[in-house]
Simulated assay, not measured.
Amino acid sequence: MSPDLDDTRPNLSRREWREQLAAARSPFGGPAAVDARSPEGSETPVTILTVCTGNICRSPMAEVLLRERLRDLGVRVHSAGTHALVGHGMTPQAQEIAVQRGAREADASAHAARYLVEPLLMESDLVITMTREHRSHVVQMVPQLMKRAFPVREFARLAATLTTDEARAAAHAAGGDVHARVRAALRAVTDQRGKSPADQSKDDVIDPYRRSGEVYEQSANELLPALDEVERILRAALEKQRN
């Protein structure tokens, strides 16, 4: 169990909590439900949750791309939707773009949409949303995630003002626990707020659902550079400290 999870668990018995968590992961958990080990033998993997509306376009694209990019670090990446089309796969356009941009075809084809529920949020070290509205939804559900939930393009905007060495130093100052290191790096990202002009109108990734191929490409072109920054900060936090 990730640090802080017991402290933030809703008013449920341990049995009810386990049952709710299991329901959130199954039957539509896909490859993200496979057990994984985080670096340095941590009991539970560092977990990233990506969130959009239907969980069939933007968030699964972010999920499968980040999973592949961070696979060598043992990071668990999964996704959910605020109004998910439960059980539906990724749209063909989103699946095609994800595979073209580096995701594993097996991961993309195995995706099945699921609702965003509290247990998924509670176990997440980082929540990446596709819009500011999605981020507000997350924080309303679990206020403790205020400093660990970001619209993906806002994350990228903030992280761009933080060097890799600064992120690494912040993370490793937190000690050997990988969850603590990630959260320290996220605090460093959050601390960048106010240090550069912010255009919040550019923090959202456009929703391509039921729209043209050109809009799907626009959505991907907004999303992928932001994922570069997510990967950079996570790597700075999790890779072994250099001598």
Rank of each mutant, 00 (worst) to 15 (best):
A160K: 15
Y115H: 14
V152K: 02
A23E: 05
T131Q: 06
P31A: 01
A113V: 03
V139D: 13
A198S: 06
V99D: 06
Q144I: 07
D4L: 13
D203V: 11
V46E: 06
P119Y: 02
L238F: 04
R71I: 09
A84D: 05
Q192G: 01
V99W: 04
T129R: 15
D35S: 09
N243P: 15
A24K: 00
A167H: 03
M1A: 14
D203Q: 11
P3R: 12
D207C: 04
M122R: 15
I56L: 09
V230S: 01
R25N: 14
A170T: 07
I206P: 07
L73V: 09
T91F: 07
F28I: 03
R101Q: 14
L21M: 09
H111W: 12
I97M: 14
Q93I: 08
L158I: 02
R157K: 15
I97D: 14
C52I: 11
P60F: 00
V46T: 08
T47K: 08
H172S: 01
R183A: 03
N55M: 03
L121S: 14
K240R: 03
L234A: 09
A62T: 08
G87L: 08
S136T: 07
A103E: 07
S219Y: 10
P10D: 11
Q144R: 13
D4R: 14
V51A: 06
L121F: 11
A106Y: 01
E239V: 14
V86L: 10
T129V: 12
A106R: 02
G87C: 07
D228P: 12
S26Y: 05
E43F: 01
D165H: 02
R132S: 11
D191H: 11
D165A: 05
K240V: 03
L126A: 03
A112E: 13
V189I: 05
L186A: 03
R114T: 07
R232L: 04
R67A: 11
A112Y: 07
V182T: 04
P197M: 10
V86R: 09
S196W: 02
A169E: 06
G54S: 12
S212M: 15
A98K: 12
Q218A: 09
A188E: 09
E133Y: 08
L162Y: 03
G54M: 08
L145T: 05
F28Y: 11
E133H: 10
K202T: 02
P39D: 05
Q95W: 01
R193P: 09
S79H: 04
L85N: 04
E222A: 07
Q140S: 13
C57F: 01
A23Q: 10
M122K: 07
A160G: 14
M141W: 00
L116F: 05
V77F: 00
I233R: 02
R193T: 07
H78K: 14
E40Y: 11
R148N: 10
E222G: 09
R135Y: 02
D35E: 08
A156F: 05
E40H: 11
S2G: 08
T47R: 14
I48P: 15
E133N: 08
M141I: 12
A156E: 06
P60E: 06
M141F: 00
V51Y: 07
H88Y: 04
H111D: 06
K202V: 00
D4G: 00
G194Y: 06
K147C: 04
L234D: 14
E96A: 15
H83G: 15
G41P: 14
T53P: 12
V230Q: 01
L5F: 13
V127I: 13
A184C: 04
